[in-house]
Protein backbone atom coordinates (compact mmCIF):
# COMPACT_ATOMS: atom_id res chain seq x y z
CA UNK A 1 0.00 0.00 0.00
CA UNK A 2 1.07 3.54 -0.74
CA UNK A 3 1.83 5.44 2.47
CA UNK A 4 1.05 8.96 3.65
CA UNK A 5 4.26 10.35 2.19
CA UNK A 6 3.83 8.62 -1.16
CA UNK A 7 6.19 5.73 -0.45
CA UNK A 8 5.15 2.59 -2.35
CA UNK A 9 5.57 -1.09 -1.53
CA UNK A 10 5.00 -2.88 -4.82
CA UNK A 11 5.50 -2.21 -8.51
CA UNK A 12 4.73 -3.99 -11.77
CA UNK A 13 6.89 -2.92 -14.67
CA UNK A 14 5.68 -3.49 -18.23
CA UNK A 15 8.84 -3.28 -20.26
CA UNK A 16 11.23 -4.24 -17.49
CA UNK A 17 14.22 -3.86 -19.76
CA UNK A 18 13.75 -0.12 -20.19
CA UNK A 19 16.66 1.80 -18.70
CA UNK A 20 14.38 4.47 -17.25
CA UNK A 21 12.19 1.78 -15.68
CA UNK A 22 15.18 0.00 -14.20
CA UNK A 23 16.55 3.19 -12.69
CA UNK A 24 13.10 4.02 -11.30
CA UNK A 25 12.59 0.62 -9.70
CA UNK A 26 16.09 0.71 -8.21
CA UNK A 27 15.16 3.96 -6.44
CA UNK A 28 11.80 2.62 -5.26
CA UNK A 29 13.49 -0.46 -3.79
CA UNK A 30 16.09 1.73 -2.08
CA UNK A 31 13.16 3.37 -0.26
CA UNK A 32 10.57 0.76 0.84
CA UNK A 33 9.33 -1.10 -2.24
CA UNK A 34 9.68 -4.83 -1.55
CA UNK A 35 7.66 -6.46 -4.34
CA UNK A 36 8.74 -6.06 -7.96
CA UNK A 37 7.31 -7.82 -11.00
CA UNK A 38 9.31 -7.30 -14.17
CA UNK A 39 7.38 -8.08 -17.33
CA UNK A 40 9.05 -8.08 -20.73
CA UNK A 41 9.42 -9.76 -24.08
CA UNK A 42 12.66 -11.54 -23.18
CA UNK A 43 12.35 -12.76 -19.57
CA UNK A 44 15.87 -14.22 -19.58
CA UNK A 45 17.27 -10.74 -20.19
CA UNK A 46 15.44 -9.50 -17.08
CA UNK A 47 16.92 -12.07 -14.70
CA UNK A 48 20.08 -10.05 -13.97
CA UNK A 49 17.90 -7.03 -13.17
CA UNK A 50 15.83 -9.21 -10.85
CA UNK A 51 18.95 -10.47 -9.11
CA UNK A 52 20.21 -6.95 -8.61
CA UNK A 53 16.88 -5.88 -7.06
CA UNK A 54 16.92 -8.86 -4.69
CA UNK A 55 20.38 -7.85 -3.56
CA UNK A 56 19.11 -4.33 -3.01
CA UNK A 57 16.48 -5.55 -0.56
CA UNK A 58 13.40 -6.47 -2.59
CA UNK A 59 11.89 -9.60 -1.04
CA UNK A 60 9.56 -10.68 -3.84
CA UNK A 61 10.90 -10.30 -7.36
CA UNK A 62 9.27 -12.04 -10.30
CA UNK A 63 9.97 -12.07 -14.00
CA UNK A 64 7.04 -12.52 -16.36
CA UNK A 65 6.90 -12.96 -20.13
CA UNK A 66 4.88 -10.15 -21.63
CA UNK A 67 4.66 -9.09 -25.26
CA UNK A 68 3.19 -5.64 -25.81
CA UNK A 69 2.36 -6.42 -29.44
CA UNK A 70 0.41 -9.57 -28.57
CA UNK A 71 -2.66 -7.76 -27.30
CA UNK A 72 -4.83 -10.87 -27.10
CA UNK A 73 -2.60 -12.22 -24.32
CA UNK A 74 -2.74 -9.13 -22.10
CA UNK A 75 -5.86 -9.96 -20.10
CA UNK A 76 -4.53 -13.41 -19.18
CA UNK A 77 -0.89 -12.51 -18.56
CA UNK A 78 -1.62 -9.37 -16.51
CA UNK A 79 -4.66 -10.93 -14.84
CA UNK A 80 -2.40 -13.70 -13.52
CA UNK A 81 0.01 -11.15 -12.08
CA UNK A 82 -2.81 -9.33 -10.29
CA UNK A 83 -4.27 -12.61 -9.02
CA UNK A 84 -0.94 -13.51 -7.45
CA UNK A 85 -0.37 -9.99 -6.09
CA UNK A 86 -3.68 -8.58 -4.92
CA UNK A 87 -2.13 -5.18 -4.18
CA UNK A 88 0.05 -3.41 -6.71
CA UNK A 89 0.74 0.19 -5.77
CA UNK A 90 2.38 1.23 -9.02
CA UNK A 91 2.21 -0.11 -12.55
CA UNK A 92 4.91 1.40 -14.72
CA UNK A 93 4.07 1.22 -18.41
CA UNK A 94 7.56 1.60 -19.86
CA UNK A 95 7.79 -0.49 -23.01
CA UNK A 96 8.36 1.17 -26.33
CA UNK A 97 10.52 1.10 -29.42
CA UNK A 98 12.18 4.16 -30.87
CA UNK A 99 13.19 2.60 -34.19
CA UNK A 100 14.71 4.44 -37.08
CA UNK A 101 12.64 6.87 -39.09
CA UNK A 102 14.44 6.17 -42.41
CA UNK A 103 13.93 2.42 -41.92
CA UNK A 104 10.26 2.96 -41.10
CA UNK A 105 9.86 4.94 -44.30
CA UNK A 106 11.57 2.20 -46.28
CA UNK A 107 9.54 -0.55 -44.59
CA UNK A 108 6.05 0.64 -43.61
CA UNK A 109 5.25 -2.71 -42.00
CA UNK A 110 8.09 -2.14 -39.51
CA UNK A 111 6.57 1.24 -38.74
CA UNK A 112 3.21 -0.39 -38.13
CA UNK A 113 4.82 -2.93 -35.79
CA UNK A 114 6.43 -0.14 -33.75
CA UNK A 115 3.11 1.68 -33.50
CA UNK A 116 1.46 -1.61 -32.58
CA UNK A 117 3.82 -1.92 -29.59
CA UNK A 118 4.03 1.71 -28.50
CA UNK A 119 0.39 2.63 -28.88
CA UNK A 120 -1.90 -0.35 -29.49
CA UNK A 121 -0.08 -2.48 -26.92
CA UNK A 122 -0.28 0.32 -24.39
CA UNK A 123 -4.00 0.81 -25.00
CA UNK A 124 -4.69 -2.86 -24.48
CA UNK A 125 -2.48 -3.41 -21.46
CA UNK A 126 -3.40 0.00 -20.02
CA UNK A 127 -7.09 -0.89 -20.06
CA UNK A 128 -6.47 -4.29 -18.46
CA UNK A 129 -4.36 -2.68 -15.73
CA UNK A 130 -6.87 0.13 -15.16
CA UNK A 131 -9.66 -2.36 -14.63
CA UNK A 132 -7.66 -4.36 -12.10
CA UNK A 133 -6.49 -1.26 -10.24
CA UNK A 134 -10.06 0.01 -10.14
CA UNK A 135 -11.18 -3.23 -8.49
CA UNK A 136 -8.26 -2.95 -6.09
CA UNK A 137 -9.50 0.52 -5.08
CA UNK A 138 -6.09 2.17 -5.19
CA UNK A 139 -2.93 2.40 -7.28
CA UNK A 140 -1.03 4.49 -9.78
CA UNK A 141 -0.49 3.81 -13.45
CA UNK A 142 2.68 5.56 -14.55
CA UNK A 143 2.83 5.97 -18.31
CA UNK A 144 6.11 6.74 -20.05
CA UNK A 145 5.12 9.14 -22.78
CA UNK A 146 7.58 11.48 -24.48
CA UNK A 147 7.94 15.09 -25.55
CA UNK A 148 8.21 13.59 -29.03
CA UNK A 149 4.42 13.26 -28.86
CA UNK A 150 3.93 16.93 -28.04
CA UNK A 151 4.71 18.03 -31.56
CA UNK A 152 5.66 15.73 -34.44
CA UNK A 153 9.14 16.11 -35.89
CA UNK A 154 10.25 15.17 -39.36
CA UNK A 155 13.06 13.10 -37.81
CA UNK A 156 10.92 10.74 -35.74
CA UNK A 157 7.26 11.23 -36.51
CA UNK A 158 6.37 7.53 -36.49
CA UNK A 159 7.66 7.24 -32.93
CA UNK A 160 6.31 10.71 -32.08
CA UNK A 161 2.82 9.95 -33.34
CA UNK A 162 2.70 6.69 -31.38
CA UNK A 163 3.61 8.63 -28.23
CA UNK A 164 1.05 11.33 -29.09
CA UNK A 165 -1.60 8.63 -29.23
CA UNK A 166 -0.35 7.08 -26.01
CA UNK A 167 -0.33 10.46 -24.26
CA UNK A 168 -3.89 11.26 -25.32
CA UNK A 169 -4.99 7.78 -24.28
CA UNK A 170 -3.40 8.20 -20.85
CA UNK A 171 -5.03 11.60 -20.34
CA UNK A 172 -8.45 10.21 -21.10
CA UNK A 173 -7.82 7.13 -18.99
CA UNK A 174 -6.85 9.38 -16.07
CA UNK A 175 -10.16 11.21 -16.36
CA UNK A 176 -12.08 7.94 -16.55
CA UNK A 177 -10.45 6.83 -13.30
CA UNK A 178 -11.44 9.92 -11.32
CA UNK A 179 -13.08 8.83 -8.06
CA UNK A 180 -11.87 5.24 -8.38
CA UNK A 181 -8.90 5.64 -6.05
CA UNK A 182 -6.61 5.06 -9.05
CA UNK A 183 -4.53 7.78 -10.65
CA UNK A 184 -2.43 8.11 -13.78
CA UNK A 185 0.98 9.77 -13.86
CA UNK A 186 2.02 10.77 -17.38
CA UNK A 187 5.78 11.14 -17.77
CA UNK A 188 7.13 13.24 -20.63
CA UNK A 189 10.89 12.99 -20.78
CA UNK A 190 12.92 14.96 -23.26
CA UNK A 191 15.92 13.47 -25.04
CA UNK A 192 17.33 10.75 -22.79
CA UNK A 193 20.82 9.35 -23.29
CA UNK A 194 20.22 5.58 -23.22
CA UNK A 195 21.04 2.55 -25.31
CA UNK A 196 17.94 3.39 -27.31
CA UNK A 197 19.43 6.74 -28.37
CA UNK A 198 23.05 5.63 -28.64
CA UNK A 199 24.85 7.20 -31.55
CA UNK A 200 22.35 10.04 -31.87
CA UNK A 201 23.43 13.61 -31.23
CA UNK A 202 22.03 15.14 -28.04
CA UNK A 203 18.96 17.28 -28.40
CA UNK A 204 18.71 20.42 -26.22
CA UNK A 205 17.88 19.66 -22.57
CA UNK A 206 19.23 16.13 -22.96
CA UNK A 207 18.99 14.17 -19.74
CA UNK A 208 19.82 10.76 -18.31
CA UNK A 209 17.71 7.77 -17.35
CA UNK A 210 18.73 8.31 -13.74
CA UNK A 211 17.56 11.93 -13.72
CA UNK A 212 14.26 10.95 -15.33
CA UNK A 213 13.87 8.23 -12.69
CA UNK A 214 14.34 10.83 -9.95
CA UNK A 215 11.56 12.91 -11.49
CA UNK A 216 9.31 9.85 -11.79
CA UNK A 217 9.83 8.88 -8.16
CA UNK A 218 9.04 12.45 -7.09
CA UNK A 219 5.96 12.40 -9.33
CA UNK A 220 4.80 9.12 -7.76
CA UNK A 221 5.25 10.67 -4.31
CA UNK A 222 3.21 13.77 -5.16
CA UNK A 223 0.78 11.80 -7.33
CA UNK A 224 1.44 14.34 -10.09
CA UNK A 225 -0.82 14.07 -13.15
CA UNK A 226 2.04 15.02 -15.48
CA UNK A 227 5.79 14.86 -14.96
CA UNK A 228 8.06 16.69 -17.40
CA UNK A 229 11.67 15.67 -17.26
CA UNK A 230 13.57 17.90 -16.97
CA UNK A 231 10.82 20.06 -15.47
CA UNK A 232 11.62 23.13 -17.56
CA UNK A 233 10.50 21.30 -20.72
CA UNK A 234 6.96 22.08 -19.66
CA UNK A 235 7.58 25.78 -20.31
CA UNK A 236 9.74 25.15 -23.34
CA UNK A 237 6.87 23.29 -24.94
CA UNK A 238 4.39 26.01 -24.10
CA UNK A 239 6.35 28.01 -26.65
CA UNK A 240 7.30 25.25 -29.10
CA UNK A 241 3.73 24.02 -29.37
CA UNK A 242 2.64 27.35 -30.82
CA UNK A 243 5.50 28.06 -33.21
CA UNK A 244 4.38 28.50 -36.84
CA UNK A 245 5.17 25.35 -38.83
CA UNK A 246 8.02 26.78 -40.96
CA UNK A 247 9.81 27.99 -37.85
CA UNK A 248 9.10 24.73 -35.99
CA UNK A 249 10.63 22.78 -38.89
CA UNK A 250 13.79 24.80 -38.58
CA UNK A 251 13.94 24.48 -34.79
CA UNK A 252 13.07 20.79 -34.74
CA UNK A 253 15.47 19.75 -37.47
CA UNK A 254 18.44 21.63 -36.21
Amino acid sequence: MRDALGGVQSVLVLGGGSEIARATVRKLVADRCRTVILAGRRPAALEPVAAELRDAGATTVEVVAFDAQDTTSHATVLGDVFDRHPDLDVVLLAFGVLGSQPEFEADPSAAAAAVQANYVGAVSSGLVVADRLRRQGHGQLVVLSSVAGERARRDNFVYGSSKAGLDAFAQGLADSLTGSGVSVVIVRPGFVRTQMTEGMTDAPFATTADAVADDIVAGIRRDAPVVWSPAKLRWVFVVLRHLPRPIWRKVANR
Binding site: M1, R2, D3, A4, L5, G137, H138, G179, S180, G181
Partner: peptide, 16 residues
Protein backbone atom coordinates in the same frame (compact mmCIF):
# COMPACT_ATOMS: atom_id res chain seq x y z
CA UNK B 1 -22.01 3.26 -2.23
CA UNK B 2 -18.41 3.41 -3.40
CA UNK B 3 -16.56 6.25 -1.79
CA UNK B 4 -13.03 7.53 -1.38
CA UNK B 5 -11.90 7.40 2.25
CA UNK B 6 -8.92 8.74 4.13
CA UNK B 7 -7.94 8.98 7.77
CA UNK B 8 -7.86 12.24 9.72
CA UNK B 9 -4.53 13.16 8.10
CA UNK B 10 -6.22 13.18 4.66
CA UNK B 11 -3.39 11.26 3.01
CA UNK B 12 -3.47 8.01 0.95
CA UNK B 13 -7.12 7.91 -0.16
CA UNK B 14 -8.59 4.61 -1.30
CA UNK B 15 -12.02 3.65 -2.56
CA UNK B 16 -14.31 1.16 -0.85
Amino acid sequence: HRRSLTGWGRTSPSVA
